[in-house]
Design a protein around this nucleic acid. Structure first.
Lengths: 204, 204
DNA sequence: CCTGTTTTGTACTTCACAGTACAGAGATTC
DNA sequence: GAATCTCTGTACTGTGAAGTACAAAACAGG
C-alpha cells in the first residue's frame, strides 16, 4: 500500500492527494477521474502519487476507506444516541438534512461507490461489507437498548430491523440522486419508521 | 443515434451487439467494458458498431434503454395485477425470487446503472427518471384501485407509498449485491410492506 | 557540516482503446 | 443483370492515461 509517510510534510501531502481524489471521485465517478486530475487538484506530482500509493487501484481503495471513515464519523454523534423512537427520528432528520445539502445531491458517498465497485473489485466489495457493518453496529446496539428498556417488543429481531433501515437509507439516497429531490429520502425513511413502529411494545 | 437497420440481418446484428454489451456491462460495470470486448462477444466487427451507433456513449445509452425495457417487461405481468395486499405480496415474492437467481446477484440492473451514470451523464440520468416513472406507474395505478375499492385508506398518498416502495427495492438490491445475500432484499421489502399495511383502511 | 533518508519535479515510455478509412460482400429494385 | 443501396471485414491512426526513470531538493540525526 505504498509508503506510509513519516514526516509531517509527507502526511500532509498524502492527505491532500487523498482528499482531492475523494472529492473528484464523489463528483465525477470513479472511472472519470484520472491520475493527472488528482495531481492537479492536489497540487502534487506523479512521483508523490506513486510514492504513497502502489497504483491507481490502491489509491481508489484508500479513498474508499477514508470516505467510509468520514461518513461514519459524521453519523456517530447522533447514531450513538439512538435508544428511543425520538432518538431515531433525530438521526433520520440529520440524514435527510445532510442529503439536502447543495453539494451532496450525489446520493450516499458510500452507497454510490459501493455500486460502482462491488460488481468488479471483490476486495473493494469486502470493504463495503465492513463499512455497512460498522455503520449498522451502533444502530443494532441502540435497538437492543430499546428492547431492554421495554420500548421495543422483546421478540423483535433487531438485526433485521437494522438491515431494513439501512436498505431504506440507501434506496432513498439513490432515488434522491436520480430524481434530484431530497423528498425521496424522507419518504424512504418513513417506510423504515413504519416497520420500527410495528415492533414497538404495544401500549398496555 | 446511428443507422436504424432496415433488413432482418441488420436488426439481428444490432440486437446481438446490444445484448452482448448489456451483458458485459451488467457483469463488469460500464467503465470496464471496451468496444473490443463487445465486438468479440457479439461476433461483430468495428464497422458494425459504428454503423449502428454513433459512438461509445450512444451505445451505452442504447443499452440503458434496452435494459430498462427488459426489466419492465419482466415485471409487468405481476405489476399490472397489483390491486390488493395479496397482489403486492405476489409481486414482492417475484422480485425476491428474481434477485435470488444465480446470475443476478449483481443488484438491480437499472439501479446499478443509475448510480454509475446519474452522477456524470445528465442525459442518462434523465433516462432513469423516466425508467423509474414507468416502473412506478402501474404500482400507483394499482394502489389507486385499492383506494377506490376501499381496501386502502382514502387519505393515503399513493404516490408517496409508491416512492417509498421503489426506494426499498433499490436499497434492498444494493445491500444484497454488497453482502451477497438475497435476504437483504426480502427484509427491505418488509419495511415497505409495513408502511403499506399502515395505510390500509382499519377494519370496522 | 556531512551522510543517509524521505520527499518532490520532470520528462519519458508504453500501451490500450476510441475512433477512422476504405474496400469488399450481400441484398434489393427496376 | 446492372445500379445502388445496406451491411461487413480489416487494418490503421491518434491520443490520453497509467506507470517508470532518475536526479534534485528538503530534511533529519550525529
Amino acid at each position: 500500500m505504498g509508503h506510509t509517510p513519516t514526516t509531517a510534510r509527507g502526511r500532509a501531502t498524502r492527505k491532500r492527494i487523498l482528499d482531492a481524489a475523494a472529492d473528484l471521485i464523489q463528483r465525477r465517478g470513479v472511472a472519470a477521474v484520472t491520475l493527472d486530475d488528482v495531481e492537479r487538484a492536489a497540487g502534487a506530482g506523479r512521483s508523490q502519487l506513486y510514492h504513497y500509493f502502489d497504483d491507481r487501484d490502491d489509491l481508489i481503495r484508500s479513498v474508499v476507506h477514508s470516505t467510509v471513515d468520514t461518513v461514519l464519523a459524521a453519523q456517530e454523534p447522533l447514531l450513538l444516541k439512538v435508544d428511543s423512537l425520538a432518538g431515531i427520528d433525530r438521526w433520520f432528520d440529520a440524514i435527510v438534512a445532510n442529503g439536502t445539502r447543495q453539494d451532496a445531491v450525489g446520493g450516499c458517498a458510500i452507497g454510490s461507490l459501493a455500486s460502482q465497485l462491488s460488481g468488479r473489485d471483490d476486495l473493494a466489495r469486502q470493504a463495503f461489507v465492513d463499512a455497512f457493518a460498522r455503520w449498522e453496529a451502533p444502530l443494532i446496539a441502540g435497538l437492543q437498548r430499546m428492547q431492554e428498556s421495554g420500548e421495543l417488543c422483546p421478540d423483535a429481531d433487531v438485526t433485521e430491523l437494522a438491515d431494513l433501515t439501512m436498505a431504506a437509507i440507501q434506496g432513498g439516497l439513490l432515488l434522491a440522486q436520480v430524481r434530484r429531490t431530497p423528498d425521496q429520502l424522507r419518504l424512504a425513511l418513513r417506510g423504515a419508521r413504519a416497520a420500527l413502529e410495528d415492533a414497538l411494545t404495544p401500549l398496555p
